[in-house]
C-alpha cells in the first residue's frame, strides 16, 4: 500500500470493520426472531420435516396460525389487557417513583440514603417467595381473576427500579435552576413541577418504558392471579392456552410473541437515546 488512503477510503474501511464486528451480534440477536417469524407462517406438517431446508417454506406459507390466535383464543383481549395493564403500571410507577426519586435525590432528607437503599433492596426479593402472600393481598382487595390484580402487583418491581432511575436523573438537574425558580416565587412543589420535571422528561420517559417492559416479563404472578381466558396478559395467555397437554401450537405461539414484541421493540428504539441519558443520570458531573 504505497499511496496514502484518502479520507473516503479510510471511512469505507472503518465502516467495513465495524459492520464485520457487528454481524455476529446481529445474527445472534435476530436469528431466533427470524426463526419465530418463519415458524409462525408455516404449516404444522412443514415443521416436522428433516429432509428439507428449514430456513424457508417447503409448503406454501399459511395464515392458519394467526387464525387460531384471533379466532380460537382471546388473543385480541390479551393484547388490550397487556397494554392497559402496562399503562396503569406505568402511571402508578410515575406517581410514586418520581416524587420519591426527587425527594431522595434533592431534599437532603435525614436517612435518605438508607431509605433509598431499602427501597432498592426490595427489588432483590424473588417473586417466587412473594407470590403466595401476595395472592392473599389480591384476594383481600377482591381483585382475584381480574387483570387489575396485576396492576396492583407489578409496581412491586417497577417502583424500586424506577425510583432509583429517577433519583439518578434528578441529580443531573443543576441545583441553581431550582433555586432560581424558588426566588421567582415558586414554592418547593412549584419548582419541582415547573422546572425540574420538564428538564427531567427523558428520565420520566425512561421510567415509563421500563415499567412497560418489566410488566411484560412476568409470568408467575399472572399465572397465579389471573385464570379467566379474557383477563390474561399476552405473556401468560400465550403459553397457557397454546400448549395443550403434550401438544405445542408452535406457529401460533411464535406469531403471538412477535405481534406483541416487535411493536414494543420499535417503541423502545424510539426512546433508546433518552433511555441511555436516563440511566446515566447521576454520572459524569
Amino acid at each position: 500500500m504505497a499511496a496514502p488512503l484518502t479520507a473516503r477510503q479510510k471511512d469505507f474501511r472503518r465502516h467495513l470493520l465495524i459492520y464485520a464486528g457487528l454481524i455476529p451480534f446481529v445474527v445472534i440477536a435476530v436469528f431466533p426472531i427470524y426463526w419465530m417469524a418463519i415458524t409462525a407462517f408455516k404449516h404444522e406438517s412443514d415443521l416436522y420435516r428433516m429432509d428439507s431446508i428449514p430456513f424457508w417454506f417447503n409448503l406454501p406459507p399459511t395464515l392458519k396460525n394467526f387464525e387460531i390466535l384471533f379466532y380460537q383464543t382471546n388473543y385480541g383481549a390479551w393484547i388490550v389487557n397487556t397494554m392497559t395493564i402496562s399503562a396503569w403500571v406505568a402511571l402508578i410507577t410515575l406517581l410514586t417513583a418520581v416524587p420519591a426519586g426527587y425527594a431522595l435525590a434533592r431534599l437532603r432528607l435525614p436517612g435518605a440514603e438508607n431509605i433509598g437503599i431499602s427501597i432498592f433492596m426490595t427489588y432483590l426479593v424473588p417473586g417466587i417467595i412473594l407470590f403466595l402472600p401476595l395472592s392473599r393481598v389480591v384476594a383481600t382487595l377482591g381483585l382475584q381473576d381480574s387483570w387489575w390484580a396485576l396492576v396492583v402487583v407489578y409496581p412491586t418491581f417497577t417502583v424500586p427500579f424506577c425510583t432509583w432511575l429517577m433519583m439518578g436523573f434528578f441529580k443531573t438537574v443543576p441545583m441553581e435552576m431550582e433555586e432560581a425558580a424558588r426566588v421567582d416565587g415558586c414554592g418547593q412543589f412549584g419548582a419541582l413541577v415547573r422546572v425540574v420535571l420538564p428538564v427531567s422528561l427523558p428520565g420520566v420517559l425512561t421510567s415509563v418504558i421500563f415499567a412497560f417492559t418489566l410488566s411484560m416479563q412476568d409470568f408467575l404472578y399472572g399465572l397465579a392471579f389471573v385464570a379467566p381466558g379474557d383477563q390474561k396478559p399476552v405473556p401468560v395467555g400465550v403459553p397457557t392456552e397454546l400448549i395443550r397437554g403434550d401438544v405445542f401450537f408452535w406457529g401460533s405461539l411464535m406469531g403471538a410473541a412477535l405481534l406483541v414484541g416487535l411493536p414494543v421493540a420499535i417503541l423502545y428504539n424510539f426512546f433508546l437515546d433518552r433511555f441511555i441519558q436516563g440511566i446515566t443520570g447521576g454520572l459524569g458531573k
Binding site: P133, S135, Q144, D145, A224, F225
Partner: peptide, 11 residues
C-alpha cells in the same frame, strides 16, 4: 394456581 387459590381463600 391451586396453591395461590388456597392462600387467597378465593378463586
Amino acid at each position: 394456581r391451586m396453591a395461590a387459590e388456597f392462600a387467597a381463600g378465593a378463586g
